[in-house]
Design a binder for these strands. Structure first.
Length: 322
DNA sequence: CATCAGGGCCCTG
DNA sequence: CAGGGCCCTGAT
């Protein structure tokens, strides 16, 4: 299938709440790569499926961390109406976390021995959902019990089978699909593209979205515990996936409760300079960042993956299993 | 060659 | 609440 050309373009300008670090928010070096987006300094391109339309988005940095501004090129196959755009903008503000206020975090921990320097370096960095809840759940399912290479393989197979390719601004990127498209296939067809036992999880979750049993917009208004309870009802979503969802998708910055083994190894090195420290001890370290435990964890985490881009860190390479 | 664990989760006893 | 099984892949 040749790519769909998105020849119409609208431009909007948005001002995030300061501080907002453009590159640290659009590019997350700790994530495995997916074919739906593309980053270079100051420019981020991504596809988006919104209200039945396939879009190409090009974000360009037009400001600074303390005085942030961005221009967004919105590419589409057919012209977009003013109503459509009015509805899209708030969604972009949510997905790229333009509005949440993290100034309290900086005021409190600016002088912290461990966190202070990292905050200084990455001021204005936040988690961002980027994708819809359905799309994010697919990612968490294929992450489970798999190495990065295998996760990448599964995502590629999924995009190949269900997604379209969109061409805009000289690039071709893959787009996600409506749940209905995956609903049509059998579990066996999903197994055929090497999803293994995860095929059942995806089928069941897809069904729940097709039947409109999950309302992402209602979830965004709920409190943390309520969201946790709702997400745990999803077949194939357990405590580890929920831990990521709460922070990365629903922007709860507090309550660090569990540390998966992989993160435990890396945090042991970063904080205690030891090979392996008990999770209780690591949790104890983060307890002092009350109300911001997850965000504190995330700053230290993202920092080492950014460093990895231009610095060889031997022990880290061993932990990143491809 | 066979065996095993991996950015988990479900189900059973 | 502990432990087996699960898809597939690369490491040993």
């Amino acid at each position: 299938m040749p790519p769909i050309k998105l020849n119409h373009k609208e431009i909007v300008s948005l001002i995030p709440r300061a501080p907002y670090n453009f590159d640290a928010n659009f590019h997350k070096p700790a994530y495995f790569p997916t074919p739906d987006d593309d980053w270079e300094e100051g420019i981020y391109r991504v596809t988006m499926l919104w209200r039945g339309q396939e879009l190409g988005l090009k974000f360009e940095n037009r400001g600074t961390t303390d005085n942030p501004e961005m221009e967004i090129g919105i590419y589409s196959q057919n012209p977009l109406t003013a109503d459509y755009l009015d509805d899209l903008i708030p969604e972009l503000r949510w997905r790229y976390n333009l509005d949440s206020d993290i100034s309290g975090f900086y005021e409190k921990y600016r002088k912290d021995r461990v966190l202070g320097p990292v905050i200084e370096k990455w001021k204005g960095m936040k988690p961002r959902a980027a994708a819809s809840l359905y799309e994010t759940l697919i990612i968490y399912i294929v992450l489970q019990n798999a190495t990065v290479r295998r996760t990448v393989q599964m995502m590629e197979n999924l995009f190949e089978k269900f997604g379209n390719k969109l061409e805009f601004d000289g690039k071709t990127l893959s787009a996600y699909w409506e749940p209905g498209k995956m609903e049509e296939v059998t579990e066996q067809e999903l197994r055929d593209i090497k999803l293994g036992y995860r095929a059942k999880f995806l089928k069941r979750i897809t069904e729940q979205f097709v039947n409109k049993e999950i309302d992402e917009f209602a979830l965004r208004k709920m409190g943390r515990e309520e969201v946790r309870t709702e997400m745990l009802k999803l077949y194939g979503i357990g405590p580890a996936s929920v831990g990521y969802l709460l922070f990365e998708h629903f922007y709860f910055y507090d309550k660090l409760e569990t540390i998966p083994p992989w993160e435990q190894k890396i945090m042991s090195r970063l904080i205690f300079n030891e090979e392996l420290v008990a999770t209780d001890k690591i949790l104890g370290f983060f307890r002092k960042f009350e109300g911001w435990e997850k965000l504190a964890f995330n700053y230290i985490w993202e920092d080492v993956f950014w460093r990895r881009k231009h610095e060889h860190i031997e022990w880290l390479e061993k932990e990143i299993r491809l």
